[in-house]
Design a protein around this nucleic acid. Structure first.
Lengths: 92, 92
DNA sequence: TCCATACATTTACATTTATCGATACGTGTG
DNA sequence: CACACGTATCGATAAATGTAAATGTATGGA
């Protein structure tokens, strides 16, 4: 019936820059200012991308003073994997 | 560096109607005319979606006379899973 | 308290994408 | 060959998305 929510989560990963962010976060937790130096995008654009990734559950955030620290969510990844598998796995 | 190709493949799955198509194909191979009856979209729109899914490698096609038969690709699914895991799996 | 810093939100705009009607293409049938 | 049928492609349009400048908000330091 409603695939909207799943489509929204998948869309969170369906962007070049967000994939680059995920790859960067694989190594370790990073703060927004660090990600901003790695990618060639504006601060507002990065903030937009991080919001989508966090909303999808794939990325966790931790606020420390003025800094936002982002990291991959293992739980989010597990749920994502499971969700994807529900669509691409053959058989019942 | 170049995440464009992966983003394109993920985008193939990032749509409500295409998720519905994948769920339908999970059961068994289906011809386009059958899918057309299941979904509430026009024939040209379905053709567009099927092209994206086939290009991503997630769906195989088989032409039989006038009919196009679509099915999930196990190889495509395996490659997709692996690709996704490369982005969401924590650690190196 | 004033200011600089880090980040989020708003606004506007350009590009991409989903959609459909019309048309073209290919295939089997009479 | 002419036609019907299934599907693909083209052209146009509306909606969604990515982007950045401007502005707002919160935090810490002088």
């Amino acid at each position: 019936m409603g695939y909207r929510e799943d489509a929204r989560k998948i869309k969170a990963l369906a962007d070049e820059n967000r994939l680059a962010i995920m790859m960067s976060l694989k190594q370790k937790e990073k703060c927004a200012c660090y990600l901003l130096e790695e990618l060639n995008i504006s601060q507002s654009t990065l903030s937009h991308h991080m919001k989508l990734l966090c909303d999808s559950g794939l990325v966790d955030y931790r606020k420390e003073g003025k800094w936002m620290h982002y990291s991959l969510s293992e739980e989010g990844a597990a749920a994502f994997r499971k969700m994807i598998d529900g669509y691409i796995r053959t058989g019942k």
